[in-house]
């Protein structure tokens, strides 16, 4: 057990963290590269970048846009995102670990704020899971990965919360091991699943806007693909 714990703390964490960080960087650069290619090829180069930027910014505060008929979803989704971003990055215990390993530290949030945010994340996450299970329209749009990622995320936060309590019936090392392993699974999956929107969100609007500008010879290429050669008319 201590060996497994050391493995999860050291090599497995390095593996998953690097896959996450480099994988996200790769996705971001590839998307940028694709956008440049699209602009180079499109004949119509009049793109309303200002408008796209505005849309992107407005999606960062989705309360007034999403699910006007179920405000609870958009509200809990917003809180859920806040917790998921702030707690892992600014929890003091995590910052101590970074300082001990690579010597870089940054200001963190106090324990009480972290506790409140964690509980909020757990509550809103459970709510979102409930909507995915019980609301028919959302269930029809969900796949296995959507449930899996949400459950893993809830597991990470729950075990993290338990591990930071002094009084709990479960052995500390077991809880920490589950916390580490589930977090590592989540990190590895990040660049390969929809979680990649954490870095791609500034480009999503831009990509979908530009992708509709076909290159001038697109029709000819389609013809070649379908018929093998271009027939003179």
């Amino acid at each position: 057990m201590p060996d497994l714990y050391e493995l999860a703390r050291g090599p497995l964490f390095r593996l998953s963290f690097l896959i996450m960080a480099l994988g996200l960087l790769r996705l971001f650069l590839l998307s940028l590269f694709g956008i440049v290619q699209m602009v180079r090829r499109a004949r119509d180069k009049n793109n309303s970048y200002g408008k796209i930027l505005l849309t992107t910014a407005s999606w960062m505060l989705p309360v007034h846009r999403l699910h006007r008929h179920i405000p609870l979803i958009s509200f809990s989704s917003f809180l859920f995102h806040a917790g998921v971003i702030v707690v892992p990055l600014f929890l003091l215990d995590h910052i101590y670990l970074w300082q001990a390993s690579i010597g870089i530290a940054w200001p963190g949030i106090s324990r009480s704020v972290a506790d409140v945010l964690t509980l909020l994340t757990l509550i809103t996450g459970t709510l979102l899971l409930g909507f995915r299970i019980f609301s028919r329209s959302i269930r029809q749009n969900s796949g296995f990965v959507d449930y899996f990622l949400l459950i893993v995320l809830l597991l990470i936060f729950a075990t993290g919360y338990i591990a930071s309590r002094p009084y709990n019936p479960i052995p500390y090392q077991t809880v920490m091991l589950i916390h580490l392993l589930s977090a590592e699974v989540f990190l590895v999956l990040t660049p390969f699943t929809k979680i990649a929107h954490c870095i791609l969100f500034p480009l999503i609007r831009l990509t979908s806007e530009l992708a509709w500008k076909f290159p001038p010879d697109a029709g000819r290429n389609v013809t070649i693909q379908v018929h093998g050669e271009v027939k003179s008319i």
Partner: peptide
């Protein structure tokens, strides 16, 4: 790029 990313991560773990 996917090869580079995965091999770098595995090597760093090893």
């Amino acid at each position: 790029s996917i090869i580079v990313v995965s091999v770098i991560s595995i090597t760093a773990a090893m």
